[in-house]
Write a protein that binds this DNA or RNA. Structure first.
Lengths: 182, 182
DNA sequence: AAAGACATGTAAAACGTTACATGATTGC
DNA sequence: GCAATCATGTAACGTTTTACATGTCTTT
């Protein structure tokens, strides 16, 4: 059994759906799951090599090469699928959240109120932009819910929409409360 | 200027309020900010040593030693306070979220629906328990909002309450949607 | 010919957790 | 005496990001 490298599971999960190259995997991560999970080339390529050695993935036919350098596609093996499923069946899941925004706010009393308001505004702007995108994804996915996989994608996007809307509501409340101080 | 070790800022932020030992810092982290930031002894003690060398903190009078081994308290220096404030004034904040729960749900189509429902239930139980605690903190803090620092603590706790309630709402919606599949 | 997208891969650095080593004091 | 709590500190380990190195093909 592999260690606990979650990037392995991300890759296996994506390969369970379609054959992909390392470069494609990065793109899938960036525009599908990046709001709750990230990955870089420096972790993807070594993970693919390690999993190939362990027989969890194997090199597959490379589809059309869309220009550029040679492309190496991978497929998931039966062993890889078993590893993916045992991970999925373990209900233990670590949700590791690091909000530097909250950290700054928690220590806001050290300096002036406007500094905290600025921090909240920066957060609000970032979240507003992301929320727009998530809502577009959500709207598109809601039209194709007859596909079983799409339901799962829809649920994760909905999680994002729900929490991001909560963030924005909180931003307003927080700024109102801080506004009374200054 | 120090690197980018956020644990340094956590420690400086706590020391800006009161002198603390490494052991105390760990306790403060665990029961005040752990829902959005974590820290272990293995990062706290080395950070204190490094910041002492850099003149951001210094050894201070140790208050009553509440039994046990010798206790080393630290205070923040003017340089430390400046470092803290420059960090606070930089509105750039990285919020790094890793939801293994969502990762498992995203790949839920690989196996049976019940597996995803189990994952959501486990998440829901964890969040429900934490939400109870957060609400207690929130209620207590709401009584002492005349203290300026308490307003900042109250806002971060409110962030937790807001998002956790969103999580639970989403859990119900997600389970309802998945229930229709099985 | 230069820029930019496509594509793989490695090495260094940063960071954090876990586990271990050590040791004092208090209460049972 | 033993367990629990208080308390500091280090070392090993693992993961991930960042930066770098390399190379092709297409478009301007």
């Amino acid at each position: 059994m592999a260690k606990d490298r979650k990037i392995d599971m991300v890759i296996l999960g994506l390969l369970a759906h379609e054959n992909l190259s390392g470069y494609d995997i990065k793109k899938r991560i960036d525009n599908s799951i990046s709001f709750f999970w990230k990955g870089s080339f420096g972790s993807i390529y070594p993970s693919l090599s390690a999993m190939e050695k362990d027989g969890l993935v194997q090199k597959a036919d490379t589809g059309e090469n869309s220009g550029g350098r040679e492309k190496i596609c991978y497929s998931i093996t039966p062993d890889g699928k078993n590893a993916l499923i045992s991970w999925l069946e373990d209900t233990k899941a670590v949700n590791d959240l690091k909000y530097e925004t909250l950290l700054k706010l928690f220590f806001g009393g050290v300096t002036d109120v406007q500094t905290s308001i600025n921090t909240i505004n920066a957060f609000e702007n970032e979240i507003s932009a992301s929320l727009e995108m998530l809502k577009m994804y959500q709207a598109n996915l809601s039209k194709v819910l007859d596909n079983k996989d799409h339901i799962y994608y829809y649920l994760t996007v909905s999680f994002g929409v729900e929490t991001y809307e909560g963030y924005l509501k909180w931003c307003e409340e927080a700024k109102e409360m801080l506004g009374k101080l200054s």
